[in-house]
Structure formats: C-alpha cells, structure tokens
C-alpha cells in the first residue's frame, strides 16, 4: 500500500516537472503563489518565532544554574538551536498546517468538481499547471520565511532574556557573536528547501487524487497535514544525521 502510493507520487512528480506549455502563464502563477505562501504566512511565522526565541532563552537560563558557565552561553545556545532546529522545523510544521491544507483542499475541490478534467480536455498538463507553481513558490518563500523567523526568534530571545534579568544585553550579544559557525545557516536552508518540497508535493498529491465529494476533500486535507508533518520530522532527522 505504502509502495503503491509512493510509486504514484513519484509518477505524479514526473508529470509535474514536464516542460510547461507556456512559460508566461506559469510565471504569473508562481508570483501569485509566492504572495499566497510568503506574505500570507508572514504574520503567523513572526508571532511564533518571537515566542520560540523567548522560551528558548528563558529555559536555557533556567537550566544553567552553575556559576562556572558564563551567562553569555545563553545567547549562543539560543542562536544555534534556533538556526539549526527550531526555526526551520517548527515553521515548516506550522506551514504544513497552513499551506498544506489549503493546497490539498484547493486541488481536491478542483478534482471533484471536474475542473482538473476540464484542464486535461484542453490538452493542458494539469499536474504541471497546478502543482509546479506551488512547488517553485514554496522553494523560494519557505527559506525566506525561515530567515525572517531566525532573526525574530533571536530578537525574541534577547527581549525575554533582558526583560527577565536572566542575562544582560551585553552578555547575550557577546554570546551571539562568539563561535558562530556559518554552516548552521546552510543546514537551516537545506532543511527549509526540503521541507518546502515535502509540504507542497505531499499536499498536492493528496488533493490531486481525491475521489468523491466535499467529505473526501476534507479528509484529503487532513491527511496532507498529517503526512507532511511526519515526513518533515523524518527528513529533519535524516538531514541532521547526514550533515552534522
């Protein structure tokens, strides 16, 4: 069963990446999706990022009870855990819920109302037209959102740390700026791109093969979120294993 779906998924991807009929139309769609995915998710990503950073700082400070360890370490830990894990992964899980469900229900609705059949009758490669712009927009926008998230998360950590008195501003900044390894940012970007591909293609697959009516569209959208989340966490582990 798993293999059957995986095979069907790969075949769908094959038709997604066929040469577009007309590039200008795809371009227009990509920009529309970029606004949808990028701007549309900026608000929620900003809010959760500030809290991620704040919580990380406060909890790290709580765990560092020893006087032997300088308080500046808090800044470093917040920075690294945000860049390496929290920003890319938590943002992607939230985006799986937001973008994933909307992609699955949008494509699923088009399937059950015969709009996909209408595309095919016109001689249009429906997987390409419907899915490629979403995947492209995701690959561009999710890393950008993750970068925004990293900055806001560290800012949130700074604010929470200094406000609670757990760490002084100078210590926090000193921690941020020492021992910075730029490779962690590369890993964050690799994760962001991988997760973007997972969210958009898994949800598109669920929507594209919806069969039935409104009820099944709802189920497809739930499945899209669940499977995307599991796949994201599995991929997260694999990337960490391979690159660290």
């Amino acid at each position: 069963m798993l293999f059957y779906h995986f095979g069907k998924y790969i075949l769908l991807l094959k038709s997604v990446f066929k040469k577009p009929e007309k590039f200008s139309i795809y371009q227009e769609e990509i920009f529309r999706e970029m606004v949808d995915i990028g701007l549309g998710s900026l608000g929620i990503i900003s809010i959760i990022s500030v809290f991620i950073g704040a919580v990380t700082t406060v909890q790290t400070a709580f765990q560092l009870v020893s006087d032997l360890i300088p308080k500046s370490v808090i800044g470093g830990i917040t920075r690294d855990s945000t860049i390496l894990e929290l920003s890319p992964t938590i943002c992607s899980l939230v985006l799986a819920g937001k973008i994933g469900s909307s992609i699955a229900s949008q494509i699923g609705t088009m399937r059950v109302t015969e709009q996909i059949d209408a595309l095919e009758i016109m001689g249009i490669n429906a997987p390409g037209y419907l899915i490629l712009p979403k995947v492209t927009a995701g690959i561009i926008m999710v890393p950008m959102l993750v970068i925004v998230s990293i900055f806001l998360s560290i800012t949130g950590g700074y604010l929470a740390g200094t406000a609670s008195g757990a760490v002084t501003a100078a210590e926090f900044v000193q921690g941020l700026t020492t021992n910075f390894n730029p490779f962690t940012v590369t890993i964050a970007m690799v994760k962001a791109v991988t997760f973007a591909i997972i969210i958009t293609t898994v949800s598109a697959y669920q929507g594209f093969y919806t069969d039935g009516g409104a009820l099944e569209v709802g189920q497809a959208s739930t499945k899209a979120v669940v499977i995307s989340c599991i796949a994201i966490l599995a991929a997260d582990y694999i990337i960490a294993q391979l690159l660290l």
Partner: peptide, 10 residues
C-alpha cells in the same frame, strides 16, 4: 467540452 457540472475554474 461542456461538463455536467460546468467545471468552470472557481
């Protein structure tokens, strides 16, 4: 082709 459900793009 005209579909039974019209199938216009919403």
């Amino acid at each position: 082709m005209l579909f039974q459900s019209s199938a216009l793009f919403d």
